[in-house]
Design a protein around this nucleic acid. Structure first.
Lengths: 191, 191
DNA sequence: AGAGTGATGGGACTAAGTCTCATCACTTAG
DNA sequence: CTAAGTGATGAGACTTAGTCCCATCACTCT
């Protein structure tokens, strides 16, 4: 399978990350990314659906982990316990290599609307994936949506913390989800 | 102000909606939309940031209504009561004319990833707008985010119901938010 | 009538994204 | 050891989104 210089996708990701950081996302052409990676525009689009996607690769895998995490939670677990299982399960996909470029990647995304847009879509994907998995466990549709939304919120916050402080993502995510649940309780209690 | 044939933006929206429905979003060129509206490509991009935006116009106004709804809620109101005020306030922006093309618009959006992506971004915008408005009321940041997220969920579901059944949006939204709160309670209680 | 203003038309230009075909590195059967 | 096969890449044409600049036109006000 691997011919020529191996790992074309990874080389493209790294080249893109550097160029986006150096000169900004919109000032960087796909051809330029490909050139720095020793490839061509054709090859770039063979590996990535579009220019944005070079920063969001492998998220389908994470969504898959979320759903299987929920599916694999104990029978008697409630929706939020299942969501916790999902967050724990996804930690297997958050590799140390992924953490290395995380902050740089987040900075680039934060600086561009198109990229924030793609990020929003990915988060919606996570949410519906979890909600559907919860429904398959017999959770009513609305409760599933609420639990999934809270799960995504915890995931986002946990992910940021994990990038800042490191450590085990499963641990961080568990703690973050607990805080979200506390906030929910405070919401209902405080009226 | 109005010269030539008036209401260029509205004509563009209607032309786009028809063409997207007839032949699909990706099979429709901007030049074609402009032509059907009796205008040119230049004018299209003068009124809309990009091709997607022709289906999402005026949402900044809605976000504005959400924030001012929250800001205008009674002092002693809790976060979720403020969110309810936001949803009630936004009903002023959901005109009957908007409802007329709602289903067609939703169908087009549902059929295209780029458009779902833009929709996701708009919802994130609503969420952060509400969360920031809640923070300005002194609500802790995490609770504000949770409440805003629940508010967006209620807004989406209420919007769909409103399109299907009509009636007063404020009424529908209030009922939907109540259901979301019940689901949240069921989530915490059932474990 | 003439200057000013704001919206439009037109056309050139860049870059994203698609498509097709040739080519090259490497594998495997004979 | 060679020749066919396979999969990834290169090359280039092509369409369209989106930007820019400038001329023009409709209408207003003096």
């Amino acid at each position: 399978m691997g011919r020529w210089e191996p790992d074309a996708p990874e080389r493209l990701v790294l080249a893109a990350l550097d160029l986006f950081t150096e000169q900004g996302y919109e000032n960087t052409a796909v051809a330029q990314i490909a050139e720095r990676a020793g490839l061509t525009k054709s090859t770039f689009f063979r590996h990535f659906r579009d220019k944005r996607e070079v920063l969001f690769g492998g998220q389908e895998v994470l969504a898959e982990m979320l759903t299987s995490g929920i599916a694999g939670a104990p029978e008697q677990a409630g929706p939020l316990a299942a969501v916790e299982a999902a967050l724990v399960a996804v930690s297997a996909g958050l590799t140390e290599e992924r953490r290395a470029h995380g902050p740089q990647r987040l900075a680039v995304i934060a600086g561009n609307v198109e990229l924030r847009e793609r990020d929003a879509l990915k988060m919606v994907g996570f949410s519906t994936a979890m909600a559907e998995a919860l429904c398959r466990r017999g959770v009513p549709e609305l409760e599933a949506s609420v639990a999934a939304e809270l799960g995504v919120l915890a995931f986002r916050r946990g992910y940021h913390r994990w990038l800042e402080n490191g450590g085990d993502f499963a641990e961080v995510a568990r703690r973050t989800l607990r805080e979200v649940r506390a906030a929910v309780a405070g919401l209902e209690g405080g009226e």
